[in-house]
Design a protein around this nucleic acid. Structure first.
Lengths: 246, 246
DNA sequence: CGTGCGGTTGATCCGAGTCAAGCCAAGTGG
DNA sequence: CCACTTGGCTTGACTCGGATCAACCGCACG
């Protein structure tokens, strides 16, 4: 919908060394892999820092990188020719992004906040995975999980009301942040991004949020955070769209 | 939405032998695999016939089988507690269904027409794939394809009008059938199933179809088939939702 | 100060959903 | 053979939720 401030990606080879001690290597798809193998893999990787709004890859263009998010938040998006944009998924720390075994990006990937990543050149990663079935297995499990998540999200986009979508989004964000009721949760998205994610317009998102505020279900201390006052009421508003987002 | 006539699945071990000559073994995920390995794998497989409306697995329940469609058509669905159903995907001949490396079904799989399949017990398939990285690689590529398809479909469900959805559905079906303009194409879905697929109601599907008929874009010789009269007009109606379904 | 940007709020519109009636072809049973 | 039902589909009248268009608010920044 908007052309984000698109800078060049900061690709600093000198940061490769710290990757060997990268905290994400024990999580996400690497969790099940042996230390030796990880050393081997991470020697081939690099650290990458993306500023808010910077884009890792563009839909339809060549995509040379794959990797995992270390900190921050990415959006995976697709856009129609008339400008309608849809966020197809979010990538939180630990999530794997990019398309192994293909150099064609089927969607754009853009940083919503300042983000750091562990990245590999696609062909390097592919070759390594080809020699290490365990890694390929881990990638497969991750892909199957993503497929399930995408399908549940399809359900939400196809069949639920704006009320249900906004409520289940808030629950999802609170759960991701591990925040209990009464604790402030950081919404890392602008209203526009929430709208793109939920398949709504910015005005509808705003209205549904104020409705929840007026019903004393949440507080909205500022534009980028919220506090759940009544979990039960929020769950109720989400219907079982809740379980779809899980 | 409806309780389909749910029979027990016809699981006939005696049909295993013909699987060695099953035509699908040279297609789909098996295409890249060696003949010896396929013999080995298919010795462990079975043929399965599903009548229209029969269900291979139920959402949330244990799913012991994985396999590929040999002939016919399956729907992959999920349902909300209030009965709202959504078709998350269709499985045409050659497509792989089921969830390897997990015995939990995340969606239901039901035959829309009489269907034959090549199936494997999940744990048998998993073990075999564990010993044959090429097979696992093929499954991974298939999963990544499905993920892309699901994400494009999300876009369609989130952002397009009923007109665009119905038009792109017709184009998709015609392309799948390889039928040119003027040739009748079999819609293998009822109006209800089309609605569940497109995230619409049966009435809206019906209205959009008659609108296309009245505009002389398609002919509808009977309830289960259609003929494209003007490809250009149909493409136009689909907008670029067309490319989303591809 | 203005100016711009992100967000909210209000008025109105429109398209898909809902509810209800009717159509037609395929059974079904007297 | 014909009345009657049944199920899938179409059509019409109406409703309603979310989109659209537009005004406005508040804050950051020059």
């Amino acid at each position: 919908m908007y052309i984000e401030t698109a800078g060049t990606t900061k690709f600093d080879r000198k940061l490769a060394a710290p990757c060997l001690k990268c905290p994400t290597r024990r999580h996400s798809i690497y969790a099940a892999l042996s230390g030796d193998m990880l050393d081997d893999l991470f020697r081939r990787g690099h650290c990458l820092a993306l500023g808010r709004g910077e884009t890792l890859m563009w839909e339809g263009e060549e995509a040379l990188l794959v990797g995992t998010v270390r900190s921050g938040l990415l959006k995976i998006t697709s856009m129609m020719s008339d400008g309608r944009e849809q966020i197809l998924g979010l990538a939180f720390p630990g999530d794997f992004v990019g398309r192994p075994f293909s150099r064609q990006a089927t969607s754009s990937i853009t940083a919503l906040t300042d983000t750091t990543m562990c990245v590999f050149r696609g062909n390097v990663f592919d070759a390594f995975a080809g020699n290490h079935p365990e890694l390929q297995h881990a990638v497969l499990l991750h892909a199957l999980d993503e497929l399930d998540r995408a399908r549940r999200w399809m359900m939400l986009l196809a069949r639920t009301s704006a009320r249900e979508r906004v409520a289940s989004f808030l629950i999802e964000m609170a759960d991701r942040a591990g925040a209990g009721d009464g604790e402030p949760v950081d919404i890392m998205l602008s209203r526009q991004q929430m709208a793109d994610f939920l398949g709504l317009t910015i005005e509808t998102v705003s209205r549904r949020l104020t409705a929840l505020r007026q019903a004393r279900v949440v507080r909205l201390p500022d534009l980028r955070s919220f506090i759940i006052l009544s979990r039960a009421a929020l769950r109720d508003a989400a219907g079982d769209a809740l379980s779809l987002a899980a």
